[in-house]
Design a protein around this nucleic acid. Sequence first.
DNA 1: CCGGATCCGTTTCGATACTG
DNA 2: CAGTATCGAAACGGATCCGG
Lengths: 147, 147
Amino acid sequence: MEYNFRCTCPITSALDVVGDRWILVIVKLMLLEGRYTFNTMKESDEGIATNILTAKLKLMEGYELIRKEKLPNNKKTNIYSLTDRGLSLTPLIIELTLWSDAHLKDVHDTLKIGNEVELINHDREGVIAAIKSQYLAKMKDILNPDT
Amino acid sequence: MEYNFRCTCPITSALDVVGDRWILVIVKLMLLEGRYTFNTMKESDEGIATNILTAKLKLMEGYELIRKEKLPNNKKTNIYSLTDRGLSLTPLIIELTLWSDAHLKDVHDTLKIGNEVELINHDREGVIAAIKSQYLAKMKDILNPDT
DNA sequence: CCGGATCCGTTTCGATACTG
DNA sequence: CAGTATCGAAACGGATCCGG
């Protein structure tokens, strides 16, 4: 292909979101591990401290990556869910997971996405769309179980 | 699509590389802006401090993302180039650039990848392959101008 | 128990100035 | 050109505390 891709514009602003390890971790916890409460997030294998979790959740809310709500019948538990903007990070999370899978076999036995890797390579857009729609359906079910 | 994607394995190790804003910036400078010396990197619009640049380049060398060489006829200028491992971050850089383009129009007028975005969406794999092969050809030319 | 907030010692960052 | 040195600011992390 005859093609010359150049991008000389700084990306530092984007990196406030995308270059922040904890933000990426939290999006991954919500999107790929199905976690949506403070405690389930802090209990993940990522080992995030509570003060950091508090700070990052607040930050992400400010960036409009996530939304914080409560269930009508439960006044104490906060439900965190990804906004459309947050979900727009899905391709990045996918690439991140693929990269981990390809380069960190030595660190972790497997990322447990095993044969999923083939699927992603075969129908990338389909997988991304499926992840998003299934996430939305699930969160809708949690926040609005009656309908 | 009937599909349930889950990844419960921690990605923190990957984030030592991918969650580090400066590493991503540097890869982008090398890959998309064609910079390969210390000074040209520090003079980019990303505004990276010299001590940070030094530290990150050293780190990336340790991670085997980049290689540091000198031209035979120039003993003072270091030539930094991406290894295969470093180039494997290309899809991530692409996603990062796309995300910036989609969400930071307010910060920067444009990322100057304009209609390239369509091209990426149309032939993602082709664009990635092209970027890599053109990078390799260019660096080979710089490091080995005679052949 | 859940969902944080606060304190505090340690590490890292980042801007500027300076050097071989 | 390619870094060091310095130093204040910010981030991290862990432990603990607190209101519901």
